[in-house]
């Protein structure tokens, strides 16, 4: 799980071009939108694309997306829940 979260942080920084942010600056449980990283609605679409490209997971329901993209922790939990046992 820790490896997955570290990897996710690097991928988020790269996908959203967060130039002045380092992986260690992102708290696992800090909100990605609004406060925290201050991401916006276009970023949420970029993160959906990241999940699809990197983890082959398609989020069909946008309401589900809001919960999944709350934090790095929630994204990692979701990815792990979709991995084959």
């Amino acid at each position: 799980m820790e490896d997955l979260k570290s990897k996710l942080k690097v991928q988020i920084i790269e996908a959203l071009n967060l130039q002045d942010t380092k992986p260690e600056d992102i708290d696992d449980n800090a909100p990605l939108f609004g406060e925290g990283l201050g991401l916006d609605s276009i970023d949420s679409l970029e993160l959906m694309v990241l999940l699809e490209r990197q983890y082959h997971i398609k989020v069909e329901d946008p309401r589900e997306g809001r919960k999944i993209l709350q934090s790095v922790q929630s994204m990692a939990d979701f990815i792990q829940s979709k991995q084959p046992a």
Partner: peptide
């Protein structure tokens, strides 16, 4: 590259 799936919205916009 992605066969018309998973396209980034930013370059499109």
């Amino acid at each position: 590259q992605y066969k018309e799936t998973a396209l980034n919205p930013t370059p499109f916009i």
